[in-house]
Computed example of a mutant assay.
Amino acid sequence: MSDDHLIEHRVNQEELLRGRFLHAFRDTVRLPNQNLATREYVVHPGAVMVIPMLDTPDGLRLVMERQFRYPVGLVMTEFPAGKLDPGEDPWLCAQRELLEETGYTARQWARAGVLHPVIAYSTEVIEIWFAKDLSLGERQLDTDEFLDVFTASPAELMAACQQGLLTDAKTLTGLLWLQNVQSGQWPLHWQTLCTPTP
């Protein structure tokens, strides 16, 4: 089945902003009915999110973060995540971000899939990675990075979602993946890390 009746075609592009992190454009597009419209959007370098699974005597705990997110003016609960450096392999990025932000390294990794968090106005794609067989070391935060690390059970996080206390889109998607992995509906293909973590 063809999607031609839905596709928009760019006829002009105007650069609005070239920042250190984001690149914004306003495009003129031709709609399927041949009318013209404008689309403003941000080009994003891509990112990874890690779902770190910590086995404890009390059962599965997940390594989480709390940090202030300036655009929404709130301290948010999130899975560890970070943007890709130019040309960086997403798996290496996942290892780097987990270590830098939480101090954990993982021997077992599984790529779950991707999510598009803000399709209306950004090109951002986030790769979802699961990590287990964790070891705790020293965090390597940037000098201008401030966040708390804690652990929570899946049940605690699901309760926070239900109560509206956990609203980060990528973390909600990660919990959906976790639910389906735990139920056996969405199997993962685990890889053992054989090289040193960056």
Rank of each mutant, 00 (worst) to 15 (best):
A106I: 00
Q140Y: 07
L134A: 10
A81H: 10
W91C: 01
D85G: 05
L54R: 05
A120M: 15
A24Y: 06
L22W: 14
H116Y: 07
F146K: 15
F130R: 05
E100C: 07
L147C: 03
D27Q: 01
Q140G: 14
M53I: 00
L6D: 11
L6K: 09
V11F: 05
G59P: 09
D27F: 01
L36R: 12
V43Y: 01
Q95G: 06
E124L: 03
R107L: 08
R20S: 15
E138W: 01
L6Y: 14
D142Q: 14
V114F: 09
L141Y: 03
G46I: 01
E100R: 15
Y104R: 00
P80G: 01
E100I: 04
S153F: 00
I51F: 08
G73R: 10
G113T: 08
E15N: 04
F146M: 12
E88T: 08
A110L: 01
H23D: 07
V50Y: 01
G19P: 05
G73Y: 09
E88P: 11
E138M: 10
V63G: 08
E14D: 12
P80N: 11
V149L: 08
E101V: 03
L31G: 08
A81M: 12
Q108P: 03
L136S: 07
E88M: 13
H9Y: 12
E138N: 09
D133L: 04
L6F: 13
P71A: 09
L74P: 01
F21A: 11
I119C: 11
E8Q: 08
A152V: 08
S153W: 09
A131T: 12
P52T: 05
W129F: 15
E65C: 14
D89Y: 06
A47C: 06
Q140H: 13
L141P: 05
Q67N: 14
L147V: 00
A131V: 13
V114Y: 05
N35E: 15
V11L: 13
A131K: 09
Q34S: 10
A94E: 07
P52N: 02
L99G: 14
Y70L: 12
E14K: 09
D58H: 09
E97C: 01
L54G: 01
G19I: 03
G137M: 02
F21Y: 14
R18N: 13
D144R: 02
T105M: 04
L141V: 11
T105S: 13
V75I: 09
N33V: 10
F150Y: 12
D144A: 12
A152C: 04
M76F: 04
Y121W: 15
P52K: 04
R18W: 05
L62E: 02
V50E: 02
I126W: 03
R107D: 10
G113P: 11
V48N: 05
F25T: 04
P86L: 07
I126F: 00
G73Q: 06
R18S: 08
I128D: 06
R66N: 10
V118T: 15
R39D: 13
V72F: 06
A110I: 00
R139N: 00
L62V: 06
D85Q: 07
R10Y: 02
E8S: 06
V72N: 15
L31S: 05
P32S: 03
G87P: 02
A120F: 14
G46M: 00
E78C: 10
P57R: 07
R107Y: 02
A110N: 00
F150H: 10
E127M: 02
